[in-house]
């Protein structure tokens, strides 16, 4: 693996009661990190990745996340 990739994604409840997208990211050293996206960014990410469901985000490179957040 030469760059971080999305390991898995799941829906998580935000503190204010909104659903958020939790993304676990596998880094080059094998360790897991994560980032949480709001619904708008998550939707954009799924479109960018042509993902029909959150499960289909697995394996996508981390730059895809950066691109939708910028």
């Amino acid at each position: 693996m030469t760059e971080p990739v999305i390991e898995h994604a799941e829906i998580a409840p935000g503190h204010d009661g909104q659903a958020e997208l939790f993304l676990a990211i596998r880094y080059e050293n094998g360790a897991l990190g994560n980032v949480t996206l709001n619904a708008k960014c998550a939707d954009k990410l799924m479109r960018d990745c042509n993902a029909e469901s959150v499960a289909a985000l697995a394996g996508q490179p981390w730059q895809k996340i950066l691109n939708v957040l910028k």
């Binding site: 409840p13 009661g17 659903a19 619904a39 939707d43 959150v54 499960a55």
Partner: peptide, 16 residues
Amino acid sequence: IDISFNFDMASLMFAA
């Protein structure tokens, strides 16, 4: 913790 949503937005509740 609870989650609230409606059909007007693309809630992540349905993203799975």
